[in-house]
């Protein structure tokens, strides 16, 4: 498909999605909201982890920091500034973390990022307990589901756009080289660490913003609510299902999985975890490269 045509099509779809809450009941707006949140998370996650193949479990660390920033600042600053602060804090944190850890590789990086989420959660708890003497903060912003949905939709669109732009740039090419073989990429003159760091910061900032935007939906925020590790795992699995190496991969993974979760929790509230576990096993065995790759694979085989 030609690029202008693809953009026009994307704009039409986006407009239709934006108009949807005016026509559908609140519950479906809520479903769209949750889904868009995960599309943004999975796409932002894949932005860094897809090409570099650094599997990060730190998603919820940034997501939670975003939500907490809103909880702390929502009564002292106007909302747009709060979002700006959240983005800034996320970026700064990603910079510090990235500088100190992106030289780790493979399973060490996975373990570190998982630890990071817990570290941030414990640090926030410690701070609240020993310094501010509050546990649990309130977010009273006059947002309904659809307002939060629109913000998330815009963020998801921006994330996809960034992902698209990076994929076409020299940066994207460098990333692919790093993903294939870091040593070779370094010898070819690519500043590996700087590029990884840049991507990590962009990805983490977007994830932080998702948390910040979603925070007003829960009214009450405490570490155990916003640093829920399930968020990291869901994001990872959605991106992997769709295919983390492709622009639309995370979206293709997030949408059906989210609908599936929703359907499972409505229809089998008591067996949710069991069915979910079985499905994950199935996904890993049947489509280790993701749905999109599998589709291409199948189509390719059909041809003579």
């Amino acid at each position: 498909m030609k690029t202008p045509l693809a953009f026009a099509l994307a704009a039409v779809v986006l407009a239709a999605l934006a108009a949807a809450p005016l026509f559908i009941p609140d519950y479906w707006t809520g479903v769209l909201l949750g889904m868009t949140g995960y599309v943004a998370l999975a796409t932002a996650w894949a932005l860094f982890s897809g090409p570099t193949r650094y599997v990060s479990l730190a998603t919820v660390a940034f997501f939670g920091v975003g939500a907490y920033t809103v909880a702390v600042l929502n009564e002292v600053l106007p909302y747009p500034l709060v979002l700006l602060c959240a983005g800034g804090i996320g970026a700064a944190m990603a910079l510090v973390v990235g500088l100190s850890t992106l030289r780790l590789a493979g399973v060490y990086f996975v373990i570190f990022t998982f630890g990071l989420a817990e570290l941030v959660r414990q640090t926030v708890s410690w701070w609240e307990v020993n310094v501010t003497y509050t546990m649990g903060r309130y977010v009273f912003l006059p947002f309904e589901g659809r307002h939060i949905y629109w913000q998330l939709l815009a963020l998801a669109a921006v994330t996809l756009l960034i992902s698209w732009a990076i994929g076409r740039s020299r940066l994207g090419l460098a990333l692919k080289a790093i993903g294939d073989d870091e040593t070779v990429a370094a010898h070819a003159g690519i500043n590996v660490t700087r590029i990884k760091l840049m991507l990590f910061v962009i990805s983490a900032t977007l994830i932080t913003l998702v948390g910040a935007i979603q925070a007003p939906r829960w009214t009450y925020i405490e570490p155990s609510i916003v640093f829920n590790p399930t968020v990291s795992f869901m994001t990872l699995i959605m991106a992997l299902l769709g295919g983390a190496m492709r622009l639309w991969g995370p979206l293709v993974g997030a949408v059906p999985l989210f609908l599936l979760f929703e359907w499972l929790s409505v229809s089998f509230p008591d067996h949710f975890s069991i069915i979910l576990g079985l499905l994950f096993i199935l996904i890993v065995f049947v489509m280790p490269q993701g749905v999109l790759a599998k589709l291409e694979d199948l189509r390719g085989r059909g041809k003579p």
Partner: peptide, 22 residues
């Protein structure tokens, strides 16, 4: 009509939306 919120704040919010509007 009973749902499991799986101890997730987002789930409990959506479950209440579902109960009210669906």
């Amino acid at each position: 009509i009973e749902y499991d919120d799986r101890s997730s704040a987002e789930e409990v919010v959506r479950a209440v939306e579902r109960l009210a509007t669906q």
